[in-house]
């Protein structure tokens, strides 16, 4: 099983309220914030690693290939993914802040055609752009099914079919998908038993986690030696035009009013009733 995992760096999402915009509104600046792996990509990478390992004896039974479109600075984020356990990576030179979803998808589809993975497991959205568009574009460009928002993945014995559950607004959908396919993951994919690959014993439970696995010291050391192939969009024969244009950025208005600290339930009810008039 070979899985392609597209990843992107983002300004530290836990400090997203510290991003600024240029005085002329032409760009977002995240200076002073650390680059992190997009959390949704990290979760998907975790799912991909679970699909390609025997967790009981900690051996690898498949290959995870990372791909990121970004400038050379993005290499640092790629190394983080390699340290978590991916075997190798591809960096496609490009300005990740400028390329739009259509362009990114065309690059990812071109890489997929070259690599011919069994699955692409990717983030449902990047937490800077918050789009949730690229995965469906990639699937469409490849003519593959897209399984968005997976919370449970169970690989068939031959590795070709996935029994899945995914989270929709109206509930949990159970479905089956024939690979190769594009998969994105919901939060619950990190559940101790959310991913079954037929190699790791079915009753194996991963530790409870809110994010992907931590890189071990050994993993970090090994990541330094893992190969990162570099290529350009021209190398891949991609020349897609932008489909959207960003014009300006601004900070949202602050919520007006101060916080009123109440001392008792009665005071809270009275304030909600007479001041806020919501009870």
């Amino acid at each position: 099983m070979k899985i392609l995992v597209p990843i992107k760096r983002v300004a530290d999402p836990n400090n997203a309220n510290k991003v600024k915009v240029a005085p002329d509104g032409s760009s977002v600046t995240s200076e002073g914030l650390e680059w992190k792996l997009n959390p949704f990509d990290e979760w998907s990478l975790e799912a991909a690693l679970r699909l390609t390992e025997n967790a009981a004896d900690k051996s690898r039974v498949g290959e995870v290939v990372l791909v990121s479109i970004g400038p050379s600075d993005a290499t640092q984020t790629i190394r983080q993914g390699l340290a978590m356990g991916a075997e190798r990576a591809i960096r496609v030179e490009g300005d990740d802040a400028q390329l739009d979803a259509w362009q990114v998808a065309n690059v990812l589809a071109a890489v997929a055609k070259k690599e011919e993975p069994d699955l692409i497991v990717m983030g449902k959205q990047v937490v800077d752009g918050d789009s949730n568009v690229v995965p469906q574009y990639v699937a469409e460009l490849l003519g593959w099914p897209a399984l968005n928002y997976a919370q449970l993945l169970k690989l068939s014995a031959d590795g070709k079919t996935i029994a899945a559950q995914r989270e929709l607004d109206t509930g949990v959908e159970t479905l089956e998908v024939d690979g190769p396919a594009v998969i994105t993951c919901a939060d619950r994919i990190l559940h101790p038993q959310a991913v079954k690959n037929g190699v790791t014993p079915d009753d194996f439970a991963y530790p409870v986690a809110e994010g992907g696995r931590y890189a071990s010291l050994k993993g970090i050391m090994q990541a330094k030696k893992k190969p990162i192939a570099e290529m350009s969009m021209a190398d891949l024969g991609v020349d897609a035009a932008a489909s959207v244009q960003y014009i300006a950025f601004e900070l949202p208005p602050a919520r007006s009013g101060n916080t009123v600290f109440v001392e008792s339930v009665d005071e809270l009810v009275q304030k909600l009733h007479t001041d806020a008039k919501v009870l």
């Binding site: 949730n132 568009v133 959207v244």
Partner: peptide
Amino acid sequence: GTAYGKDLLSRAAGKLAAGVAPD
């Protein structure tokens, strides 16, 4: 911009090489 809307419209847009303004 629900799970349904985002999932379906992006897929349909892809068929037309059309741009998406999400959410």
